[in-house]
C-alpha cells in the first residue's frame, strides 16, 4: 500500500500531537509510538469453534497485513497494542505458526512492542515476543485497555469499546468505526478485521467519554472528522 492512498487526521491533544490513521491505528507523533487497540486475533476461528463453522478465517491474516502496513509507513520506534489482542483464552491453540512468524517479524522490526493487557485479557501466546504490561506511559499519554484517569494534563488512550459512528449524509446513512475523542481521552476503534462496533450513542460512552467530544470515522481507506455537535 502506498502512503498516498491512505489518509490520516492530525489530532492535537493537551499531551501532544497524534495522527489518526484510516487503517485504525493512532500515531503519537512526538514519541514515535504507534497504538492499536482490540486486534482480536483468531476471532473468526473462535466463532467457527462455537458453531459458525463456515465463516472464513482470513481475519487474523488481514489484521496482520494492515498492522505491517502501518509499521512500514510510519516506522515507529514503539508499538503498543491496547489489550484484547487475542480474542479468547484458547486463541493460542489456533494461532498458526505462519501467523506467529508474521507477527514476530513486525515485533522485531521495531525497538519495543508492548502488549498492554486488559483485566480479563487472555494471555498473549508464548510464541509471540514483546513485553506484557498492565499499562504504558508515553510522555503525557496513559495507554490502557479500559478507560483510566490520565491526570490533569495527561491524555488517556484506550480501546475496549469498539466505537462506531453513524452519520446521516442527507442521502442515506453511513456508518463506520471511529476514533472517539474528548479532552482527556481518545478511544481507538477496534483494529481486528472481523470486529463490529458499538454505536457512540450507546449509554456506555456517556461515562467513558464525558464532556466535549468529536469523532473521526473510518470508511474505505479514508478518515473523516465530525464534531460531536454535528451528530
Amino acid at each position: 500500500m502506498s502512503p498516498q492512498k491512505q489518509s490520516a487526521l492530525i489530532e492535537r491533544t493537551r499531551a501532544g500531537v497524534t495522527a489518526c490513521d484510516a487503517r485504525k491505528g493512532l500515531m503519537l507523533l512526538d514519541h514515535d509510538t504507534l497504538c492499536v487497540a482490540d486486534l482480536h486475533f483468531e476471532k473468526a476461528s473462535f466463532l467457527q469453534m462455537n458453531g459458525h463453522a463456515p465463516l472464513p478465517t482470513y481475519d487474523t491474516r488481514d489484521s496482520l497485513h494492515r498492522l505491517a502496513g502501518l509499521v512500514a509507513d510510519y516506522v515507529p520506534k514503539t508499538v503498543v497494542a491496547l489489550g484484547d489482542s487475542f480474542h479468547d483464552i484458547d486463541a493460542d491453540q489456533r494461532f498458526s505458526e505462519t501467523d506467529c512468524d508474521l507477527l514476530n517479524a513486525i515485533v522485531d522490526s521495531v525497538e519495543t512492542f508492548i502488549w498492554v493487557l486488559g483485566n480479563h485479557d487472555p494471555d498473549i501466546p508464548d510464541c509471540v515476543r514483546g513485553p506484557r504490561e498492565d499499562h504504558a506511559q508515553v510522555g503525557g499519554f496513559l495507554l490502557t485497555h479500559h478507560p483510566h484517569d490520565p491526570g490533569p494534563d495527561g491524555v488517556n488512550l484506550c480501546g475496549h469499546y469498539h466505537p462506531k459512528l453513524r452519520v446521516n449524509t442527507g442521502r442515506g446513512k453511513v456508518s463506520g468505526p471511529c476514533f472517539a475523542v474528548s479532552e482527556e481521552r481518545i478511544i481507538l476503534p477496534s483494529f481486528g478485521t472481523f470486529t463490529g462496533g458499538l454505536d457512540v450513542e450507546d449509554i456506555a460512552f456517556k461515562s467513558a467519554l464525558p464532556g466535549a467530544h468529536r469523532y473521526h470515522m473510518v470508511r474505505k481507506d479514508r478518515i473523516y472528522r465530525f464534531d460531536g455537535a454535528v451528530i
Binding site: Q4, A8, I10, V167, N168, T169, Y224, F226, V230
Partner: peptide
C-alpha cells in the same frame, strides 16, 4: 457532511 472541505484529507495527509 463533515466539517471540512473535500480536500482536508489530502491536506492532512501531506502533514503526515
Amino acid at each position: 457532511a463533515s466539517d471540512r472541505s473535500l480536500s482536508y484529507g489530502e491536506d492532512l495527509l501531506e502533514t503526515v
